[in-house]
Design a binder for these strands. Structure first.
Lengths: 220, 220
DNA sequence: GCGACTTTGTTCCTGCGTTCACAAGCGGTT
DNA sequence: AACCGCTTGTGAACGCAGGAACAAAGTCGC
């Protein structure tokens, strides 16, 4: 079974594929059977040509003159992204944000399930969130090894995020999503994605102030 | 006051400047007075040359042979990003995620303060979070106009996010941070930044599966 | 006072991502 | 059966970000 197409999909494309998947699911729920690249691109907020190029990375199966069949395209993207199989995740740090993440129904519908919630505070141990009981940190390694955890999510205070990262990596986790406002330095071979809410706000604020004062009064 | 340097800073650089700001604050708290580009880059997880190029965008004032003065550089970045003045934000959707955002102390220390929390559910009205009472949606426009809101944050269910966006924009908000898993279509002149937690997880999962099967068995 | 070392700021270059534009292909129609 | 309009897929050009290498500049040691 030869793969004539290049098997390296750019990361930016992968992120957009996830968006297309969401839009396609919404279209399928709405009863649509086919979509053109223009409609899909508009719904996803991207350029039509870029969307077609993204889809071409997975050997696209659109029909010229008609468009794409919604269900077939959705299945294909889901297969490429690996979204058809369920992936086990653990969440460390059950504060406000952690609780929100553990309760978020959107993860389950996209193939992610938490198999462990961990916190260092004794008063949180045993608390049930989204059908799962919060466990003490001491049980982290055992759970990771026992449930073949694919992704670790860090929602702890910044001070302990690095050592949590170290423990997760040592336990075998190779993908980490970090919400703590620190730059993690993972061991080689581990992917880390950083979501920093303050950075997002600051970029927005900068763009806004740049728009307000296009003359550029930085007054350095 | 002429600005000889180009006043357009790339968006990717702006995002990294926010990270440098955080690292510099941490260094300043630790008592450091000077840093080299190498140290700073390592702490921020970027390439030293890229860091120097980023800093050159704001007419850098490092000292050759020594490095950068921590406090001065921090002040300069803060001034360029506009992080020295406090910006008013409103938050719509006080579910689990909204509560976490309203309670997040990191915003306040970076120049963002919420001046209004809004929700459609009657049972949430009046609830106090982080020193602020949740208000009904009907009061949204009044608060936005009255407190010169710079940024609107949407943490509602996906179904109502677009109409919340429309109301925010109509009320005068020109920057929106959206956590709902939908692609918003804002009116012209409004910046929207999307934070989709499921997309982050799916990108991580894809990278992980690609790493696990480098032969590329997509089996399309 | 002078030389050597360190570190910044800049320039070049390579590669990637994005956009535009066009040829190929399919369905519907006459 | 042939034509026409519509849409996909791809090739090329453009712009941008990232990385490496080098010159300028300042400090420390002698």
């Amino acid at each position: 079974m030869i793969q004539p197409r290049p098997r390296t999909i750019p990361e930016a494309t992968v992120a957009r594929l996830a968006v297309y998947l969401r839009v396609l699911t919404s279209f399928a729920d709405g009863g649509r059977t086919t979509v053109s690249s223009g409609e899909l691109a508009s719904a996803a907020g991207v350029n039509p040509a870029g969307l077609r190029k993204d889809l071409s990375h997975l050997g696209s199966c659109g029909v010229r003159g008609v468009g794409y069949e919604v269900r077939a395209l959705r299945e294909r993207i889901a297969r490429v992204l690996g979204a058809e199989r369920s992936r086990a995740c653990v969440l460390v740090g059950i504060g406000n944000l952690g609780t929100a993440l553990a309760d978020y129904a959107g993860f389950g519908s996209r193939g992610f399930r938490f198999t462990g919630l961990f916190d260092a505070a004794p008063e949180r141990i045993g608390q049930r969130i989204g059908g799962l009981a919060v466990q003490p940190m001491a049980e982290l390694e055992e759970t990771v090894a026992g449930t073949a955890v694919a992704i670790g999510v860090i929602a702890t205070p910044a001070e302990v995020a690095q050592q949590v990262c170290d423990r997760l990596c040592a336990a075998g986790v190779r993908s980490i999503l970090n919400f703590a406002p620190v730059t993690l330095t993972p061991p080689p071979g581990v992917d880390v994605r950083q979501v920093d809410l303050s950075v997002e706000l600051q970029v927005l604020a900068f763009l806004g102030q740049q728009r307000a004062v296009p003359a550029g009064e930085v007054s350095a």
